[in-house]
């Protein structure tokens, strides 16, 4: 069972990440349910997605139950921290340095150097290796990204993922 909150500003590709992970879980025959923000808020406002893998009925995560928080914007981390369970971990797009349980990467800058700001979300996915018992492996993610239809985005997404993984691995040491 995994419960994950993904948050950021409208336009940062939160829904893309949620769908990607949900698609993978579905293909693996798992039960997965999620909830996402649409409407007015996506005009640059605060958005978040809830993703739950396991025998859940509700698409929403209760306060204090999330295993992990993926944040594309550090100010949104504060808005969503209450979802985290005790000992839950945070992956954050930020230029600050990492702390225990709070793993950071300057995904925006890294994304620009790989091919564009829109890749910042995929970089954060590389941090999924910090999650013990996560149903979705890096190879699953690689495979799913490799199925993308447009060559350029496909290659860039894969490069962004690997860049994220490298940072995560360095942090693990």
């Amino acid at each position: 069972m995994t419960q994950m909150i993904l948050c950021g500003r409208g336009g940062q590709g939160i829904v893309f990440l949620t769908r990607l992970l949900g698609d993978i879980a579905t293909q693996k025959g798992l039960n997965v349910i999620s909830s996402e923000t649409h409407g007015m808020a996506v005009r640059g406002g605060s958005v978040n997605s809830h993703l739950k893998i396991g025998p859940f009925s509700s698409p929403l995560i209760r306060w204090g139950q999330a295993d992990c928080l993926v944040s594309l914007d550090s100010s949104e981390t504060l808005n969503n921290e209450h979802f985290l369970k005790q000992g839950g971990i945070v992956f954050e797009n930020s230029s600050a340095s990492s702390e225990s349980g709070l793993y950071r990467v300057d995904a925006s800058n890294m994304a620009r150097s790989i091919g564009g700001i829109q890749l910042e979300n995929v970089i954060l996915l590389g941090f999924s290796i910090f999650l013990s018992n996560f149903e979705i492996s890096l190879d699953d993610i690689r495979q799913q990204l490799a199925e993308g239809s447009r060559y350029r985005t496909r290659e860039q997404n894969l490069a962004a993922l690997e860049a994220g993984v490298r940072v995560a691995e360095a942090l693990m040491e």
Binding site: R9, G10, M40, A41, V42, R43, G44, G45, S46, W63, S75, E76, L78, N79, E81, H82
Partner: peptide, 15 residues
Amino acid sequence: EMVSPTIRARRPSLC
């Protein structure tokens, strides 16, 4: 008793 989190939601804005 549950303490409600303080949320400073970013206001939406025209693109």
